[in-house]
């Protein structure tokens, strides 16, 4: 009975985090983006500086009609948002935020494996949406998503593999237990590759060609309305949280910090994740969208060689230490 309660509690907490943190990131994006452009952003919803803007947006989306195009593949079309969103929920279960047993939803032995594999599934949601919409823009968006997934999954995996090599384990808490501060300069290239590749996989600007509105309307999500569309948007923000959390855990030492090691580890994790989320927003505001071919070129001629070089460096240092 106690076990059931424990599992239920953990799931409830993970679900709450999954529902709240992406909204916080979304609100931060509204505000940070506005101020970076010399604006104020939302100011009315909720009274104080528009804190409830995304709640209001959610209510609005829920009220809208849920349209499925006549020629669409009905079942797949309706299923796609869930496929896009749920993997991130599963990933959050496996991300440790503190050193203790209670600070992770579920310890997964092959953590990196699980996390990266499940994150890849999330992109399938966009593919399904693109194919099932029976719309050329959607199809183009879906294909771009697929091409982007192929190009960026590889450097992401290679960069993550470098950390796994350094730690000698694929378990996320295991990696964090093995973490030393000098891993930071050692793995910095891998961290950059991982972060950039993750951005591309999330289709965040400047890598948002699959939803490039000036070219293909809204890519795979063109035909979506109402709540299903909101779920795709939520998936994007959940993806930011997951990506920033993973980068924190793999490359920035998660709960390790210069002070307050005992009991305050989770603060460090959240702080680092928050800073990374800010960087994600910052990049979005600053850079224009890459062209489709530039995107591919960046992946195959820059990120993959860099990731391979990082693995070589990790191997050499590892052997030298031993």
């Amino acid at each position: 009975m106690n076990d059931v309660l424990d599992v239920a509690l953990r799931l409830a907490i993970v679900f709450a985090v999954f529902m709240v943190v992406p909204l916080v990131v979304g609100q931060a994006e509204h505000k940070v983006m506005a101020h970076m452009q010399g604006r104020l952003g939302p100011m009315y919803a909720g009274g104080f500086h528009g804190w409830a803007q995304l709640v209001a947006d959610g209510v609005k989306f829920a009220q809208k009609e849920d349209v499925v195009p006549a020629a669409a593949d009905r079942r797949i079309f309706q299923l796609a948002p869930a496929v896009a969103l749920l993997p991130y929920l599963l990933v959050i279960v496996a991300i440790p935020i503190g050193p203790s047993e209670g600070a992770v939803g579920q310890v997964v032995d092959a953590g990196i494996f699980f996390v990266l594999a499940v994150m890849g599934v999330g992109v399938l949601g966009s593919l399904m949406a693109g194919w099932a919409s029976a719309n050329k823009y959607s199809l183009l968006g879906g294909l771009r998503t697929a091409a982007q997934l192929l190009a960026y999954e590889l450097p992401m995996l290679l960069a993550a593999a470098s950390v796994a090599m350094a730690a000698g384990t694929v378990s996320l808490p295991g990696i964090l237990n093995a973490f030393e501060w000098w891993w930071l300069p050692w793995q910095i290239v891998g961290a950059l590759v991982f972060f950039v590749a993750g951005l591309a996989e999330l289709q965040r600007p400047p890598f948002d060609m699959p939803v490039a509105d000036s070219e293909i309307i809204f890519g795979a999500y063109t035909e979506y309305t109402g709540l299903r569309f909101a779920l795709f948007l939520l998936a994007e923000y959940a993806g930011i949280v997951v990506l920033c959390g993973l980068t924190t855990v793999l490359f920035l030492g998660g709960w390790h910090g210069p002070l307050g090691a005992d009991g305050l580890g989770w603060v460090w994790t959240l702080l680092k994740t928050g800073v990374l989320a800010f960087v994600v927003i910052w990049l979005r505001v600053t850079y224009p969208r890459l062209r489709e071919d530039q995107l591919q070129k960046l992946a195959w001629t820059t990120l993959i060689p860099l990731a391979l070089a990082q693995i070589a460096l990790t191997g050499i240092v590892k052997v030298a230490i031993n």
Partner: peptide, 21 residues
């Protein structure tokens, strides 16, 4: 150039906004 772009947006964020309420 990339760094310069980041600096511009960050600097704008610290300045007063121009929005008239």
């Amino acid at each position: 150039g990339l760094a310069k772009g980041l600096a511009v947006t960050l600097r704008t964020m610290t300045k007063r906004t121009v929005t008239a309420q």
